[in-house]
Amino acid sequence: MALTFRHLFRSFITTQYPEKRLSTSRRIRGQQFVWRSDLCTGCATCAKSCPHGIIQITTSTNGDNRYVVDNIEFDTGRCMFCGLCVEACPYNALYMGRSYEQARYSRKLLWADMETLMDPANQVSAYGHPELEWRIPRQSLLVYGQISQEMVDEEND
Protein backbone atom coordinates (compact mmCIF):
# COMPACT_ATOMS: atom_id res chain seq x y z
CA MET A 1 0.00 0.00 0.00
CA ALA A 2 2.92 2.32 0.58
CA LEU A 3 3.92 1.85 -3.03
CA THR A 4 0.62 3.09 -4.39
CA PHE A 5 0.77 5.97 -1.95
CA ARG A 6 4.14 6.98 -3.32
CA HIS A 7 2.82 6.73 -6.84
CA LEU A 8 0.07 9.16 -5.95
CA PHE A 9 2.60 11.95 -6.08
CA ARG A 10 4.44 10.94 -9.21
CA SER A 11 3.66 12.69 -12.45
CA PHE A 12 1.34 11.20 -15.03
CA ILE A 13 2.82 9.23 -17.87
CA THR A 14 -0.02 9.56 -20.31
CA THR A 15 -0.35 12.49 -22.62
CA GLN A 16 -3.53 14.15 -23.76
CA TYR A 17 -3.67 12.99 -27.33
CA PRO A 18 -5.45 15.48 -29.54
CA GLU A 19 -3.79 18.50 -27.97
CA LYS A 20 -0.37 17.05 -27.44
CA ARG A 21 1.28 14.72 -29.89
CA LEU A 22 4.43 12.77 -29.48
CA SER A 23 6.56 12.61 -32.55
CA THR A 24 6.56 9.10 -33.90
CA SER A 25 9.48 6.99 -34.89
CA ARG A 26 11.42 8.07 -37.95
CA ARG A 27 10.81 4.64 -39.39
CA ILE A 28 7.11 4.42 -38.62
CA ARG A 29 5.08 2.32 -40.98
CA GLY A 30 2.20 4.72 -41.08
CA GLN A 31 -1.20 4.25 -42.61
CA GLN A 32 -0.60 5.59 -46.07
CA PHE A 33 1.73 5.14 -49.00
CA VAL A 34 3.70 7.64 -50.99
CA TRP A 35 4.42 6.85 -54.59
CA ARG A 36 6.72 8.75 -56.92
CA SER A 37 5.64 8.50 -60.52
CA ASP A 38 8.94 9.78 -61.86
CA LEU A 39 10.92 6.92 -60.37
CA CYS A 40 8.45 4.09 -60.88
CA THR A 41 9.16 1.87 -63.84
CA GLY A 42 6.06 -0.22 -63.47
CA CYS A 43 7.93 -3.42 -62.70
CA ALA A 44 5.20 -4.50 -60.20
CA THR A 45 7.68 -5.97 -57.73
CA CYS A 46 5.67 -4.34 -54.98
CA ALA A 47 2.51 -6.08 -56.11
CA LYS A 48 4.29 -9.41 -56.19
CA SER A 49 5.78 -8.96 -52.75
CA CYS A 50 2.53 -8.08 -51.05
CA PRO A 51 1.28 -10.95 -48.86
CA HIS A 52 -2.35 -9.94 -49.36
CA GLY A 53 -2.14 -8.88 -52.97
CA ILE A 54 -3.74 -5.52 -52.34
CA ILE A 55 -1.68 -3.54 -54.83
CA GLN A 56 -3.26 -3.15 -58.24
CA ILE A 57 -1.01 -1.84 -60.92
CA THR A 58 -1.89 -1.45 -64.59
CA THR A 59 0.79 -0.66 -67.10
CA SER A 60 1.05 -0.23 -70.83
CA THR A 61 4.03 0.08 -73.13
CA ASN A 62 4.68 3.33 -74.87
CA GLY A 63 6.61 3.96 -78.08
CA ASP A 64 10.20 3.73 -76.86
CA ASN A 65 9.73 0.34 -75.22
CA ARG A 66 9.13 1.44 -71.62
CA TYR A 67 6.33 0.68 -69.23
CA VAL A 68 3.98 3.50 -68.34
CA VAL A 69 1.94 3.15 -65.17
CA ASP A 70 -1.67 3.76 -66.07
CA ASN A 71 -3.08 3.16 -62.65
CA ILE A 72 -1.83 2.09 -59.24
CA GLU A 73 -4.12 1.49 -56.32
CA PHE A 74 -3.66 0.29 -52.75
CA ASP A 75 -6.49 -1.27 -50.80
CA THR A 76 -5.30 0.04 -47.45
CA GLY A 77 -8.38 -1.41 -45.77
CA ARG A 78 -6.82 -4.85 -46.16
CA CYS A 79 -3.23 -3.75 -45.74
CA MET A 80 -1.35 -4.97 -42.67
CA PHE A 81 1.48 -2.45 -43.06
CA CYS A 82 4.25 -5.00 -43.08
CA GLY A 83 6.40 -2.76 -45.30
CA LEU A 84 7.50 -5.58 -47.59
CA CYS A 85 6.49 -3.66 -50.72
CA VAL A 86 8.62 -0.68 -49.74
CA GLU A 87 11.59 -2.93 -49.09
CA ALA A 88 11.04 -4.77 -52.36
CA CYS A 89 10.95 -1.70 -54.62
CA PRO A 90 14.25 -1.67 -56.50
CA TYR A 91 13.90 1.95 -57.70
CA ASN A 92 12.99 3.65 -54.40
CA ALA A 93 9.70 4.78 -55.84
CA LEU A 94 7.53 3.65 -52.95
CA TYR A 95 7.56 4.97 -49.39
CA MET A 96 5.53 4.48 -46.27
CA GLY A 97 3.81 7.57 -44.93
CA ARG A 98 3.94 8.90 -41.39
CA SER A 99 0.26 9.57 -40.88
CA TYR A 100 -1.63 7.61 -38.25
CA GLU A 101 -5.03 9.25 -38.45
CA GLN A 102 -6.58 7.50 -41.39
CA ALA A 103 -9.83 6.36 -39.76
CA ARG A 104 -12.71 6.46 -42.23
CA TYR A 105 -16.41 5.80 -42.01
CA SER A 106 -16.53 3.55 -45.01
CA ARG A 107 -14.27 0.83 -46.21
CA LYS A 108 -14.41 2.17 -49.75
CA LEU A 109 -12.72 5.38 -48.66
CA LEU A 110 -9.67 3.38 -47.70
CA TRP A 111 -8.84 2.69 -51.33
CA ALA A 112 -5.78 4.78 -52.04
CA ASP A 113 -5.82 5.73 -55.71
CA MET A 114 -3.17 7.51 -57.73
CA GLU A 115 -4.02 11.03 -56.56
CA THR A 116 -3.91 10.01 -52.91
CA LEU A 117 -0.59 8.30 -53.39
CA MET A 118 0.90 11.35 -55.09
CA ASP A 119 -0.65 13.91 -52.75
CA PRO A 120 2.10 16.44 -51.93
CA ALA A 121 0.78 16.70 -48.35
CA ASN A 122 1.88 13.13 -47.60
CA GLN A 123 4.70 12.88 -45.14
CA VAL A 124 7.34 10.37 -46.05
CA SER A 125 8.66 7.92 -43.50
CA ALA A 126 12.22 6.61 -43.55
CA TYR A 127 11.16 2.97 -43.41
CA GLY A 128 13.36 1.13 -45.89
CA HIS A 129 15.08 4.38 -46.80
CA PRO A 130 17.68 5.12 -44.13
CA GLU A 131 19.07 7.99 -46.20
CA LEU A 132 15.98 10.03 -45.33
CA GLU A 133 16.31 9.65 -41.59
CA TRP A 134 18.11 12.89 -40.82
CA ARG A 135 15.27 14.95 -42.29
CA ILE A 136 12.57 13.60 -40.00
CA PRO A 137 12.12 14.84 -36.42
CA ARG A 138 13.53 12.52 -33.82
CA GLN A 139 11.20 10.18 -32.00
CA SER A 140 10.13 11.25 -28.53
CA LEU A 141 9.78 8.34 -26.15
CA LEU A 142 6.77 8.38 -23.91
CA VAL A 143 8.54 7.70 -20.63
CA TYR A 144 12.10 8.76 -21.29
CA GLY A 145 11.38 11.78 -23.44
CA GLN A 146 13.95 12.50 -26.08
CA ILE A 147 17.24 10.69 -26.09
CA SER A 148 19.64 13.59 -26.06
CA GLN A 149 22.28 14.10 -28.73
CA GLU A 150 25.05 13.98 -26.12
CA MET A 151 24.09 10.48 -25.10
CA VAL A 152 24.08 9.37 -28.71
CA ASP A 153 27.46 10.90 -29.41
CA GLU A 154 28.94 9.47 -26.27
CA GLU A 155 27.73 6.05 -27.22
CA ASN A 156 28.88 6.06 -30.83
CA ASP A 157 32.33 7.55 -30.33
Binding site: T4, H7, L8, R10, S11, F12, I13, T14, Q16
Partner: peptide, 10 residues
Protein backbone atom coordinates in the same frame (compact mmCIF):
# COMPACT_ATOMS: atom_id res chain seq x y z
CA UNK B 1 -6.15 7.34 -11.71
CA UNK B 2 -3.60 9.42 -9.84
CA UNK B 3 -2.33 6.31 -8.11
CA UNK B 4 -2.10 4.64 -11.49
CA UNK B 5 -0.09 7.51 -12.99
CA UNK B 6 -2.76 8.86 -15.27
CA UNK B 7 -4.96 11.94 -15.06
CA UNK B 8 -8.36 10.25 -15.09
CA UNK B 9 -11.49 11.85 -16.56
CA UNK B 10 -10.68 15.48 -17.28
Amino acid sequence: AWMQLRPGPN
